[in-house]
Design a protein around this nucleic acid. Structure first.
Lengths: 197, 197
DNA sequence: CGCGTGATTGAAACCCTTCAAGTTTAGTGG
DNA sequence: CCACTAAACTTGAAGGGTTTCAATCACGCG
């Protein structure tokens, strides 16, 4: 059970560097497993996060709740994605982010101390981590750019091209929240696109 | 001249870790200096970036140009800010980003090889770099959140609170581009706010 | 001084939201 | 397995915020 989950992380790491069995054993020693049912919270806004999460299977959503009580999805995280609020975790300040499971989900949890150990003890881990962080940052820039430049329809098409497999797994109203439009608008966009062909 | 510029980087690093004179000498050895006049380009879209830039004085703007030829500012970078397209630089692929100087600006340039040397040879640099990258990423999340949740007026107020000093230095139409609104709208927002008090 | 750039202002058009109602889908208990 | 219910999705109409286009104003600089 957790073996299968750990294999996902093993595969993720193996694709990003040369790691020995001993390295994997160290990793194995510092991660915890947790199963979440659909809708179950991994973290609530106002809490100080204690873990970074690696999604082995399923899908998480990361969102904020604004002054009017409305949810705004910042990120989805499906298999092989990391999700964490590093700044809040490191500074031990409450996070504004909520995280819950869109589907039944298995995550591997990594505490800051464990992460520090990996950086220190596993050769090549720091570099792999670095690369991952940079790609993450680039993806965020891309999203900022498209929120500035693109219409709702264009943003939808861009999402489908990049994360189409996720779109099939999350309810439409969540996708709307991610895109920053109302569910009604997304419905109309889809209708409009379907009529075009 | 370049001494003053390097002092800015020295101060930046000293505030983020314990570094010896020898460490600073290593840093000094791997950075290049460059002065940019207002409007001068540091990088054009389509080019493969070769450096990360640290702003010692002045201010850069980082932007994309969309299909209609319109500029969209992704980020400003004033004193003590880093600006780079790490993914393009590392993968040696053309960047979509343009970078030019809003004012006369002095930057320190760091090649990937130099950066690798710092990570390897300067104790504490990797950790300091890591922290900086995470703060950057958090700032981007914040911007995504506010582009999803906030009206143009709220985004303007948020920018003024966070980066007010930059607002006084860049032309209003650039600020509008950063906020993702037309110059006319920003003008109206400012008028509206000034009439409220 | 006059030219060019940036900022302002007005009016029309457009995209998107909100509200409201109806339809479909999915989940639950009998 | 069906019936019932709640949630999600769709569709329509009205309203609001933003853009676009156009004209005018303000200012710095050769």
């Amino acid at each position: 059970m957790s073996e299968a989950a750990f294999d996902v992380l093993r595969g993720y790491l193996a694709a990003r560097g040369q790691f020995s069995d001993g390295d994997f054993a160290i990793v194995r020693g510092v991660v915890q497993f947790r199963n979440l049912s659909a809708g179950e919270f991994l973290q609530r806004g106002g809490e100080v996060p204690r873990y970074a999460a690696f999604v082995a299977s399923g899908c998480l959503r990361n969102y904020v709740i604004d002054a009017k009580g409305k949810e705004h999805i910042v990120q989805f995280a499906a298999e092989t994605w990391w999700l964490s609020d590093n700044v809040s975790m490191m500074t031990k300040t409450p996070s504004q982010y909520f995280v819950d499971a869109v589907e039944d989900t298995t995550v591997l949890l990594l505490e800051p101390a464990g992460h520090a150990m990996l950086l220190d003890r596993v050769r090549g881990y720091a570099a792999a981590f670095q690369t991952g962080v940079q790609k993450h940052a680039a993806a965020k820039d891309q999203r900022i750019v498209s929120s500035l430049t693109a219409s709702a329809e264009d943003r939808y098409l861009e999402f489908m091209k990049t994360y189409g497999s996720i779109a099939q797994r999350v309810p439409q109203f969540m996708l709307a929240s991610y895109l920053g439009v109302s569910p009604e608008t997304l419905s109309r966009i889809r209708k409009h696109l379907s009529q075009q062909r």
